[in-house]
Design a protein around this nucleic acid. Structure first.
Length: 330
DNA sequence: GGCCTGCTAAACACTA
DNA sequence: GTAGTGTTTAGCAGGC
């Protein structure tokens, strides 16, 4: 039988060298009719790698389902950025530390992120919000899981063990699942043409550990992204949260800042960065990942009007959609 | 019903 | 020898 995995010579660099804009390169430009912004679709969102977070935050994230990582879009147009959170946050830096995305650098073109301060008065809000089934089986195929794991690694390559760990860390379901899924992971790696094997470089630290490193074959990356995007979109759409009663709106009617998150200083940083970053005014959006075991965070420009369709186009996650939808009632 | 895809289980060989 | 890794085969389920 054909061995679909591709083994690269040890000295070869991993072919998974992705351009910064790759995730969006094949995505159609979506125009937000009501919000004066044009945003290319971001196909996917990953939960942050716990390994890039502090132990406390990582543990907190571990306790939640990846589906509880809500994505918010931020339209950086020099407007007031509003942030609302109701989580009990002890380490706001960790909570809002999204540098894991920056560090990866090639999944999403990101800009500096604001430091945010939680809203203590909302700490006990939304008690009726259903929590994502943390221990339910993730909707993602093993190929997608492997893809996410590899993409979330700094070097875009992981040993099998690293893939295991990423999955376990990000999908609590697999913490308690029987070991058969590991076999499935290995089976998938071997069988799928999407992944290629790299011999460890004996001269480097990579030589530590068993087995090879695995990376995503560039030619199959768009397909993996598309599958992931469809899965993500499907489950977000089918979450039926849009039709749910609107959650308490995180924004005041007059769009005053409920939370000051060092907004002035940060805004200056953002603006400065936008001047530097050629992508900043090209319609790229930021995806923010927030620890949100129970509560969501929505970052929106103060006067942005988003209808549900637009929100859906922006692929805000379900909870963010819910919060954004509530803006329509203002 | 056939095909494809994905999941699961199992067996086996290889290797650290 | 053991455990982890990689490959292969087979069966099953679900969608199209």
């Amino acid at each position: 039988m054909e061995n679909s995995s591709q083994t690269l010579p040890p000295s070869s660099p991993c072919p998974t060298t992705f351009g910064v804009s790759l995730p969006f390169s094949s995505s159609p430009l979506q125009t937000c009719s009501n919000s004066r912004i044009s945003l290319p679709l971001s196909p996917i969102s990953f939960p942050p790698s716990p390994t890039s977070l502090s132990p406390a935050t990582a543990e907190s994230i571990h306790s939640s389902s990846p589906l509880s990582y809500y994505t918010a879009s931020q339209c950086l147009e020099g407007q007031n950025i509003q942030c609302v959170s109701s989580a009990n946050i002890s380490d706001q830096d960790d909570l809002t530390c999204l540098s894991w995305l920056h560090q990866r650098g090639n999944l999403l073109p990101l800009q500096p992120l604001p430091k945010m301060t939680p809203l203590p008065q909302l700490e006990s809000s939304s008690p009726t919000q259903p929590l994502p089934p943390a221990l339910s089986k993730p909707p993602y195929s093993f190929s997608s899981l492997i893809f996410m794991a590899i993409e979330d690694s700094p070097d875009k390559r992981l040993p099998v063990k690293g893939i295991y760990e990423w999955i376990v860390n990000n999908f609590p379901y697999y913490r308690t699942a029987s070991g058969g899924w590991r076999n499935s992971v290995r089976h998938n790696l071997s069988l799928s043409k999407s992944f290629c094997r790299i011999q460890r470089d004996k001269s480097q630290f990579q030589s530590v550990g068993k087995g090879s490193l695995w990376c995503v074959c560039p030619e199959y990356r768009p397909a993996l992204l598309e599958v992931l995007r469809k899965t993500h979109s499907y489950h977000s759409t089918n979450s039926n949260l849009i039709n749910k009663p609107a959650a308490p709106c995180p924004l005041t009617p007059d769009n005053e800042e409920l939370v000051t998150m060092e907004s002035v200083d940060y805004q200056q940083e953002v603006n400065e960065e936008m001047e530097k970053d050629p992508l900043s005014d090209s319609g790229y959006i930021e995806l923010h990942y927030y620890q949100s075991h129970q509560y969501q965070y929505l970052v929106l420009p103060g006067d942005t009007e988003l209808d549900l369709e637009t929100v859906e186009i922006l692929q805000l996650d379900a909870e963010a959609q819910e919060a954004a939808g509530s803006l329509l009632d203002l």
